[in-house]
């Protein structure tokens, strides 16, 4: 995780498969305030394209994305 960006929430969806990581990310973001930041950790490969696409469509800012050893991390600002 980026050391410069403090997340308001951490959502660990490792072990969950499509579509649960996307649904949980979207539902968590919906409940957050504008400007707040979430750190999502997933290991389902379908998140690689879908979470960035979801952010773009919903107008959320994808601040950072990383893939390391099969784990995907996303830092998203609502």
């Amino acid at each position: 995780m980026s050391t410069e960006i403090k997340a308001d929430k951490v959502l660990d969806v490792k072990g969950l498969v499509c579509p649960r990581p996307m649904v949980m990310t979207m539902n968590t973001l919906k409940a957050m305030d504008k400007g707040q930041v979430i750190h999502v950790i997933a290991n389902d490969s379908s998140t690689k394209h879908s979470i960035p696409a979801l952010c773009e469509r919903a107008g959320y800012k994808l601040v950072e994305t990383k893939e390391e050893g099969g784990t995907f991390t996303f830092i998203i600002q609502k």
Binding site: C18, P19, M22, S46, T47, H49, S50, A53, L54, R57
Partner: peptide
Amino acid sequence: ILCGSQYNNAV
């Protein structure tokens, strides 16, 4: 051909 998820079905 986009390698996606159920998100693409929702779209």
